[in-house]
Design a protein around this nucleic acid. Structure first.
Lengths: 199, 199
DNA sequence: TTGACAAGTGAACGAACGTTTACTAAAATA
DNA sequence: TATTTTAGTAAACGTTCGTTCACTTGTCAA
């Protein structure tokens, strides 16, 4: 089959996301596909090579997703004008979409758990974890609110993003049952800001 | 030395918290103390036995800490009366202390990272992770606010606890620099509730 | 002083690890 | 049709894993 290479990537990610990179053996990955571990080396040079391809794939998916949203990219300094044009409604939609992305989409959801498990092992993984799931999103929301001249942008960014981050962990235990509560929280908060803004 | 057993526990926890249980070898643990891995088996029956003692130790530390606080223990149903007696000031103090506990105290801080890395590997670890760091604390705060007859207790509990949870991850990258911001958040929020309550 | 015990060493165990190799059969290409 | 490539197997490689064992040393109680 031509998609064996793709199946290896998916199976490896699924296992890495559950047990962590070191705890998964090459035989185990191959076993998931019903092939021997020797065959696996026809597609990837090493176990680490599989991992690297997973990270690269995530980077590619993320870049693709970034440009499909109307919210501006880049840091505040570069994009100040664009930031001002974005609306609170867009922020709501973006936040909800981001949550569903990291919980419901197979690849991103597994990659999030993988990063969670690898974050302390190397500087690089810690950086990726922060960038995708912690200080990255927080900084983005902060910059956005700041460009809108909202008072206390960092405070508000925490109010918005910390529950999203917290709900990732709730989701991991309780499943999609919790998604509605999180989206309600986002809507309530943004509505409050809009009221304060109009005043 | 009599405290070799204790040193093994500490070294193993430190390594487990960085790399995860499977990625740490018995030789590595022994190497940290300058002894051979054979000697390690004079103190613990197996690698898993070390891990189990770490979990038991955490349970013991947690039970000890629970009774040293004035806030009531147990679930709401059992302790409704006690809940009503607790004050918002106590909630602030308890929350700040809890954050410092899971970030600054050596053993709990390392155990928190260990749980983070092991949470998906077994049901038991997932349960402990939730109990110590996710739904456990959230439920506790919810019950407390609910016993005070505050409106929307779950909403408020998320407002209070989600940032604490989020700041654990910020702390892991940025260190104690972020503690002040978190404590400010707690104070601000509780002050807001007190104002609304007095009205 | 003697003997039991506690705490270490270092070599060995079988199993599992990631990786390589020789070989095969089917598919693609010339 | 003949040949090369692709994708697989099965066995073996050297290494490391967790664990055990025979042995040494120092401490302390009888």
């Amino acid at each position: 089959m031509r998609d064996t290479k793709e199946n290896i990537l998916a199976a490896a990610l699924r296992l890495f996301a559950k047990n962590g990179y070191e705890a998964v053996s090459v035989s185990e990955i191959a076993g998931e596909l019903g092939i021997t571990k020797g065959a696996l080396y026809k597609h990837y040079a090493s176990k680490r090579d599989i991992f690297d391809h997973i990270v690269a794939r995530m980077e590619q998916m993320d870049a693709q997703r970034a440009q499909s949203y109307e919210l501006p990219e880049g840091t505040r300094d570069e994009m100040e004008e664009a930031y001002r044009g974005a609306s609170i409604k867009q922020l709501i939609a973006f936040s909800c979409a981001q949550f569903r992305y990291w919980t419901e989409e197979d690849f991103p959801a597994a990659f999030r758990r993988l990063l969670t498990l690898e974050q302390y092992r190397s500087e690089e993984m810690g950086r990726l974890y922060q960038q995708y799931l912690v200080s990255g999103p927080l900084g983005y929301v902060t910059d956005l609110l700041s460009a809108w001249d909202m008072p206390d942008p960092q405070e508000k960014a925490i109010e918005l993003y910390a529950p999203m981050f917290f709900f990732y962990s709730l989701y991991d235990e309780a499943g999609s049952r919790v998604t509605a509560a999180l989206e309600e929280h986002i809507h309530r908060l943004c509505a409050k800001w809009e009221r304060a803004d109009a005043r």
